[in-house]
């Protein structure tokens, strides 16, 4: 079957994710670092549940009963003007 995009923001294909998993990535964090899946401007809001399912399927592990989800601040991309406005020094990826 044809390949398909999983992470729309960073344009990461399913095949790239599966490949990254074959070469060692086993967690969401490792996958992110290897492929950038989930690192885009929407901050994983679209692909995160998919990544969880894919990892769970290929590693044969249940989606973790994590007591802490890893979302960090800012939870929304901030424009520079907004940052200037708040006068704070937070890093912004987009």
């Amino acid at each position: 079957m044809s390949d398909k995009i999983i992470c729309r923001c960073e344009e990461v294909l399913l095949s790239e994710i599966v490949e990254a998993m074959k070469t060692g990535a086993q967690t969401e964090k490792e996958l992110k670092l290897k492929t950038r899946a989930g690192m885009g401007i929407c901050q994983g809001r679209t692909c995160r549940p998919l990544l969880e399912q894919i990892i769970s399927f290929y590693t044969n592990k249940k989606i973790p009963q994590a007591s802490n989800l890893t979302f960090s601040i800012p939870v929304r991309p901030l424009s520079l003007s907004a940052l200037a406005h708040t006068g704070k020094d937070y890093k912004n990826e987009n």
Partner: peptide
């Protein structure tokens, strides 16, 4: 950016950021 593919409305409620446009000079 990467593949220069066209994108349009996807989620319709502000979650996906696929509909980013420049409005009166303000980006995204």
């Amino acid at each position: 950016e990467k593949r220069q593919e066209p994108r349009g409305i996807y989620c319709g409620i502000g979650h996906c950021y696929e509909c980013r446009v420049t409005v009166d000079g303000e980006r995204s």
